[in-house]
């Protein structure tokens, strides 16, 4: 038996290794106790590592860790201690969350730039460089075909209103309305993401 297991036994609680082994064998009760114990420990760990996170964000990460534990529980070797195994998962989940957080920040920035661009009608090349093409494409899913075309021609291909009107067979006025609505809708989508 491992040292952490001995410590846990001394406190009267079954060691995590024991619970995990029983969970691998399909013991729902042991698994419930293990997950509850892991959730409490991971909550403390996440709060310590990222004290700036809001409680709901902390809980999101804890839930991600629990799900990863669930999906990867066959990768735990009963001959090895449990804590280094779950901490490795938690670290990876935290890193993944940090990456997502950074991406969200970039999208927020892109959304702010997008909001500004619809005021400057012809083109704003600075905004085009900031906007991540992928996030724009994603946000474009919620647009009507006419709005999508307006974004495509005016923002992505950087055409002027006159050129876009000629290319699409539409009018400058209709395109102005379409791009205005599209920008508002995309801004909403990007902020929501």
């Amino acid at each position: 038996m491992t040292a952490p297991a001995d410590q846990a036994k001394a406190k009267g609680a079954p060691p995590l290794e024991d619970l995990m082994q029983r969970a691998q064998a399909g013991d729902a009760g042991a698994y419930h106790r293990l997950l509850s114990e892991v959730a409490a420990r991971m909550r403390r760990l996440v709060q310590r590592r990222a004290p700036w996170l809001k409680p709901e964000d902390v809980e999101d990460i804890v839930q991600d860790i629990l799900l990863s534990l669930h999906q990867a529980r066959s990768t735990w070797d009963p001959a090895r201690p449990f804590l280094p195994w779950i901490v490795a998962i938690a670290r990876a989940r935290l890193a993944d969350n940090a990456r997502r957080y950074m991406r969200r920040m970039r999208i927020d920035l892109a959304a702010a730039e997008l909001a500004e661009t619809f005021c400057d009608i012809p083109t704003n090349s600075q905004a085009e460089t900031v906007v991540n093409l992928m996030s724009v494409r994603k946000a474009m899913h919620g647009l009507t075909p006419a709005e999508k075309q307006a974004v495509e021609l005016l923002r992505l291909r950087e055409m002027t209103l006159a050129e876009a009107a000629e290319a699409s067979g539409s009018t400058v006025a209709a395109l102005k309305v379409a791009i205005h609505r599209a920008m508002l809708r995309m801004k909403g989508t990007l902020w929501k993401d």
Binding site: Q24, G26, A28, G29, H32, L35, S74, W76
Partner: peptide, 10 residues
């Protein structure tokens, strides 16, 4: 998760 936990082989 506990309810859905089927036995797994290491």
């Amino acid at each position: 998760l506990a309810r859905d936990a089927a036995p797994v082989r290491a």
